Computed example of a mutant assay.
Amino acid sequence: MHITRSRPASKQGPAENFTGTVWLDEIAHPEPPSRIRVFSVHFAPGSHTAWHRHPHGQVLHVTEGEGFVQRDGGPVEPIRAGDTVWIAPGERHWHGAGPRTFMTHLAVVEAADDGATVTWEELVPDPEYPPTS
């Protein structure tokens, strides 16, 4: 057993991967052979990710606020505190806060053999966010 009593400083999400103000806190990054990574991600109103994929999928658990998630070709889905979202391996998607509230979620991913946890793609175009649905 290992108890972590301190963690890395919060990092601002880079502009090439996020629109708006987003902060990432690494919650867990266990030593190998574990490949699990856990982050708490804090989105300011209207902030969101770029399109992206995860090699082994992703679990999002919303801990506060309201937001949206969308998979490529699917409808924009509202999410709120208490919701859990499973995103399949390789599924192209984005997620973020609603236009009027902050949104925080825990993001759980499994790293690939090479250590990669995400493949970033283009930003969601401004006319498509915030969604009107």
Rank of each mutant, 00 (worst) to 15 (best):
H2C: 05
H2V: 13
I3H: 15
T4M: 12
R5K: 03
S6P: 01
S6R: 05
S6T: 13
R7H: 15
P8F: 02
P8G: 10
A9E: 13
A9W: 03
K11Y: 01
Q12I: 07
Q12H: 06
P14Q: 09
A15T: 14
E16W: 13
T19W: 05
T19N: 03
V22C: 04
V22F: 03
V22L: 08
V22S: 01
V22P: 02
L24F: 09
L24N: 06
L24D: 00
E26H: 01
I27Q: 00
A28D: 05
H29V: 06
P30V: 14
S34R: 12
I36R: 15
I36T: 15
I36C: 15
I36N: 15
R37Y: 10
V38E: 15
V38P: 06
F39E: 01
H42F: 01
F43A: 01
A44Q: 11
P45A: 07
P45Y: 02
P45R: 04
P45T: 02
H48Q: 13
H52V: 11
H52T: 09
R53M: 08
R53E: 10
H54D: 06
P55R: 07
H56D: 08
V59R: 12
L60F: 14
H61G: 09
G65M: 00
G67P: 00
G67A: 02
V69A: 08
Q70L: 03
R71F: 02
D72W: 15
G73N: 12
V76R: 15
P78D: 01
I79L: 07
I79T: 00
I79R: 02
I79V: 14
G82P: 11
T84R: 13
V85R: 11
I87V: 14
P89A: 14
G90M: 04
E91W: 08
E91Y: 04
E91K: 10
E91F: 03
E91C: 08
R92W: 04
R92T: 15
H95V: 00
G96M: 08
G96S: 13
A97F: 08
G98A: 14
M103R: 04
M103Q: 06
T104D: 11
H105G: 07
H105C: 05
L106T: 12
V108A: 05
E110F: 06
A112T: 10
D113W: 00
G115W: 06
G115S: 03
A116S: 14
A116T: 15
A116E: 07
A116G: 02
V118R: 03
T119F: 09
W120L: 12
E121N: 02
E121Q: 10
E122F: 00
P125S: 01
P125Y: 05
D126H: 14
P127I: 07
E128A: 13
E128V: 11
Y129C: 06
P130N: 09
P130T: 08
P130R: 01
